[in-house]
Amino acid sequence: MSELVSQHQRGISLQRINAMVLRYWYLLMSSWPRLLELVYWPALQIITWGFLQNYISQASGFFAKAGGTLIGAVILWDILFRGQLGFSISFLEEMWARNLGNLMMSPLKPIEFLLSLMIMSLIRLAIGVIPMTLLALFFFGFNFYAIGLPLIAFFCNLIFTSWSVGVFASGLVLRNGLGAESIVWTLMFAVMPLACIYYPVEVLPAWLQAVAWTLPPTYVFEGMRSLLIDHVFRADLMVWALVINAILFAASFATFLALLQSAKRNGSLLSSGE
C-alpha cells in the first residue's frame, strides 16, 4: 500500500489539477464583474483600432492591400497579453486570499499548480477573445478564423510565450510578495515595442532588430503580415518561434521552482503581503 501511495505521489494527478481548475472556474462564475472585465477590454480594443483602420484606409490604400493587418495584430496581441494575464490573475487570487502557503503544504505539486493555471488561462482567454473576433467580423468584415491552419501555429506560439512570462512573473511575486504585483500587469508591455506588433522589424534600429528576433512573438507578427499581405505562410518563422519558446518555457519553469524554494526557505509563503 505504501508503495502505491508513493507511486501516486510521484506522478501528476489529473484529479488535483481538475480540482484547482474547478476552484478558479467557480470563483470566476460567481462574480459578474470578473466576467464583464474579460469581455469589456478586448471588445473596446477591437472596436477602437478597427475604426482607426477604417479611417486610415480612406486616405491610404495600404490597409486595403494589407487585408486587415491592424485588426489581426490587435487580436493576436490580445491573445498574447490576455493569455499571460489569465494565468497570472488566477495565481494572484491565491496570493490575495493568503492561500498559497496552504496549497504548497498540500499534496498539490508545483507542476500541477502551474498546469491548472495554464488551463484556466485558456478558459479566460476564450471568454474574452471569441467575442472579440465576432465583433471584428460584424463591424469590419474581418474573419479572423479565415486565416486557417496557420492560426494554430500563431496561437500556440503566442500562448506558450504568455505562459512563460506568466510563470516567471508569478515566481517573482511569490518570492517578493504582493509588493511586486505590478510586475504581473507591466512585464508583457515591456515586450510590446520589440515584438513589432503593428510594424515590421525593419523599422527598428539595426541593434534593436537583433534583440527583437530573440522574442517569439516577433516571428508570429512577421508571419501574420506575410500571410495577410503577401499570402505566404512562413513556416520557418513558426519553427524558430517554437524553438525559442521551448527554451523560454524551460527557463521560466526552472526559475519558478528556484524562487519557490527560496520563498520556502525565507518563510515568505506564509507572509506574502506588501
Rank of each mutant, 00 (worst) to 15 (best):
Ala126Asn: 05
Tyr145His: 13
Cys156Asn: 13
Ile56Asp: 03
Glu94Lys: 06
Thr218Ile: 14
Thr161Pro: 07
Ile183Cys: 01
Ala59Pro: 05
Pro193Asp: 04
Ser226Lys: 08
Leu35Ile: 15
Ala19Trp: 07
Glu222Leu: 04
Ser6Leu: 12
Tyr199Ser: 03
Gly177Trp: 11
Trp25Glu: 00
Phe256Tyr: 06
Ile56Phe: 10
Thr161Leu: 14
Leu227Glu: 06
Pro110Gly: 01
Val191Met: 15
Asp230Met: 04
Phe91Cys: 00
Val184Met: 05
Leu14His: 02
Met132Arg: 09
Trp213Ile: 15
Gly273Ile: 12
Leu149Ile: 10
Ala66Pro: 04
Ile247Ser: 02
Leu36Ala: 15
Ser121Tyr: 00
Thr48Ala: 12
Gly171Glu: 01
Leu237Lys: 10
Met95Phe: 11
Arg98Val: 08
Trp41Ile: 08
Asn266Asp: 13
Leu135Asn: 06
Leu151Arg: 14
Ile111Pro: 00
Ser6Thr: 14
Trp32Gln: 11
Gln15Lys: 02
Ala180Asp: 05
Ser170Phe: 01
Val211Gly: 12
Met192Asp: 10
Phe113His: 02
Leu70Ser: 11
Ala19His: 05
Ile159Lys: 02
Tyr145Gln: 15
Leu44Met: 15
Ser90Phe: 00
Ala190Asn: 09
Glu3Asp: 10
Phe139Lys: 10
Ile111Phe: 01
Ile152Lys: 12
Trp32Val: 15
Val201Leu: 14
Pro216Gln: 13
Ser252Pro: 01
Gln9Thr: 04
Met1His: 04
Arg82Trp: 04
Ser262Lys: 15
Ile183His: 04
Ile123His: 00
Gln58Ala: 10
Met1Lys: 10
Phe91Asp: 01
Asn143Gly: 13
Asn245Lys: 05
Phe233Trp: 13
Arg82Asp: 05
Ala66Trp: 03
Val191Phe: 15
Met20Lys: 04
Ile244Asn: 04
Gly11Asn: 10
Ala43Leu: 13
Ala73Asn: 09
Pro193Val: 05
Val243Arg: 09
Glu112Leu: 04
Asn266Ser: 14
Leu92His: 03
Leu22Ile: 11
Phe253Tyr: 00
Tyr198Phe: 14
Leu70Trp: 01
Val39Leu: 12
Phe154Glu: 13
Thr133Leu: 15
Ala59Arg: 07
Leu172Val: 07
Leu178Phe: 05
Gly72Ser: 11
Pro216Cys: 13
Phe51Met: 10
Phe256Asn: 01
Glu37Arg: 15
Pro205His: 07
Gln209Asn: 02
Leu108Ala: 11
Leu269Met: 06
Leu114Met: 02
Glu202Gln: 07
Ala19Pro: 05
Leu28Asp: 06
Leu135Tyr: 13
Gln84Leu: 03
